[in-house]
Design a protein around this nucleic acid. Structure first.
Lengths: 154, 154
DNA sequence: TTAGCTTTTAACAATAATTGTTAACTAATA
DNA sequence: TATTAGTTAACAATTATTGTTAAAAGCTAA
């Protein structure tokens, strides 16, 4: 987790200007464990910077990703989710009812690709996605909204 | 893996007519380990049934999914991939260069969610996605095309 | 402080995957 | 064979995301 000063350095060092938008998106993401989508970040950012555009949020997210400050996750919830936690190895719990994503810090020592039977496939990373129902959705009457509103309702 | 006769029964038993389109899509998927997208299945289906439409392929895939005959996978390759292997526990190797998906049959005994620290999250399934480079892409000069052409080129 | 260059914004257009819609046609089954 | 379900074509629509353009705003180096 970087400080604002370090981030500023990083922007400068990579030939980028230190703008309110870049800092804002980064600040909203920093230490954020809710895995927000671009849209959600946009809404939050607007509270601080009323004129920020969704376009800029997307741009900044992509930059932060290029800089290794966050990663985008494709968890089948419709939109990419952004995770600032790029250092610690962790996995994800995805609620199939409401789309909420939680981190799971657990060591799964056996999770490494076998040496044989890969036919030359070179494995770089392993991600585990646990799917299920979060506490709120379990106790609710199904009013939480679904993970992909339009796609699943039909 | 069902036989054509069993599939026919299944369609009839669920009040569906046994059409050439339904059988065709199912046949193309049956025992198929290439995790094709709807588009790919459409192209293959057209060789047998020149008049089949992409719309119908999507419809049939969704039906087969509802019937538990296949599952759709969201592996970050842009389009959903369809897997007829719904019985045997297995995981996936995804080539980040060309988008190819391979099955990985390996037992990862430790991969089950911990009992504690879940805060009421009820885990239903665990999927492991290994990302890396397939043999062909490793030995190629990068002419294989990327996993998400438009999205990654920019 | 200003000039210059980068960013942002707005306002669109575009793309890709997928689903919805309608009407006409075709085919399965009772 | 009549009925009903399924298919097709031909679109429109949706959602997430990126591209584009021109104008305005804002960093920053000098």
């Amino acid at each position: 987790m970087k400080t604002a000063v370090e981030l500023t350095q990083l922007f400068r060092n990579t030939g980028r200007k230190v703008t309110a938008q870049r800092l804002c998106v980064w600040r909203l993401l920093e230490g954020n464990t809710s895995h927000p989508s671009a849209e959600v970040l946009f809404e939050e950012a607007r509270r601080e910077l009323e004129t920020i555009s969704l376009r800029t949020v997307y741009q900044v997210l992509r930059e932060l990703e290029e800089l290794g400050e966050c990663m985008s996750l494709d968890l089948g919830t419709g939109a990419s989710r952004f995770d600032p936690n790029v250092d610690a190895a962790h996995h994800h719990l995805v609620c199939t009812a409401c789309g909420k994503v939680r981190d799971l810090y657990a060591d799964f020592p056996s999770v490494e690709a076998p040496k044989t039977g890969l036919d030359g496939f070179q494995v770089g990373s392993a991600e585990i996605v646990f799917r299920g129902t979060c506490a709120e959705c379990k106790s609710s009457t199904g009013l939480n909204g679904s993970i992909r509103p339009k796609a699943l309702v039909s």
